[in-house]
Simulated scan of single mutants.
Amino acid sequence: MCGGRGTRLGSRVEKPLVEVCGTPMVDRVLDALAASRVASDGGEVYAVVSPDTPATREHLRGRDCTVVDAPGEGYVDDLGYALERVETPVVTVVADLPLLAPEIVNRVLDEATRPDRHGDSVTVCVPAAVKRALGASVDTSFESEGIELVPTGLNVVGGSDDHLYRSHDVRLSVNVNRPADHRLAEELCD
């Protein structure tokens, strides 16, 4: 998902093209997917852009992915638009998760393919306390089993039941939404 305007970030470039450690965030996410089982299992990678990200669309011409032009009506609507055009189950990930790594994607795939999951969806979350301890922004949270959780933007969309996968991996705690998040990602990237 790389169609957001990134107004909170205040960058001069489109949000997916903001660099973290010298590499555009969208490329960092695509590289993690390419090195994960998503690619090695023969999965296709789709990049969902919008009218708000024409430079990102152009940038993706050189990448091994299929570009989907969503209407740009917001994350949820654009995600729904994209999901209508692919087969499930599908891994979804936001472009502003620049510390994503192949082993994280593989762990989530393992969770999604557990025999007791029956092809259901998996929402990956981190405790809000982990994000706050790092100094990462918390925009949306909810409580589960007495713990405040924050969606990471990495999910598996499958069947109708949704399971939560809680991770304490700090790399999933940094969504680059604001300048402070960008600085944090720069500090933590390898």
Rank of each mutant, 00 (worst) to 15 (best):
R28G: 04
G74F: 08
D96F: 04
G119N: 13
V138K: 08
M1S: 01
R178E: 11
G3S: 11
D96R: 15
L97G: 11
S144R: 14
V45N: 00
A39N: 09
E84V: 00
V49R: 06
L99Q: 01
S50C: 05
D110Q: 13
L33W: 10
R63G: 06
V45I: 15
Y81I: 02
M1Q: 10
V48T: 04
V170R: 13
E73W: 08
G146F: 14
L172M: 10
S50L: 07
E103D: 15
Y165P: 07
S121P: 02
P179C: 02
V20F: 07
R12N: 02
T113L: 12
N177K: 14
A95D: 09
R37Y: 14
P127M: 06
S167Y: 14
T66R: 14
T123I: 01
R61A: 02
R132P: 10
V90G: 05
Y75H: 12
D169E: 15
A82E: 09
A95V: 05
V91M: 10
D78E: 13
A180C: 03
C21Y: 05
R63Q: 10
T53A: 00
V76Q: 03
D27N: 00
D190R: 15
H182Q: 13
A101V: 08
S36I: 03
V18Q: 01
R166S: 05
S141N: 01
G146P: 11
P89S: 02
S121T: 09
E143G: 00
R28Y: 02
G146R: 14
T140Q: 15
V67A: 04
V105E: 11
G74Q: 08
V91K: 13
R114K: 08
D64W: 09
V90M: 13
S137V: 05
V91G: 01
P115I: 06
L83V: 00
V86A: 03
C125A: 13
C189S: 11
D181Y: 07
E44H: 06
E58R: 11
V138Q: 04
Y46Q: 01
L79F: 04
T152D: 12
V45W: 08
A55V: 05
E111Y: 03
R57D: 01
D52I: 05
P24G: 00
E103I: 06
S36F: 09
T7N: 09
P71H: 13
V48Y: 05
G43D: 14
D27F: 03
P102D: 12
G22M: 02
H182K: 07
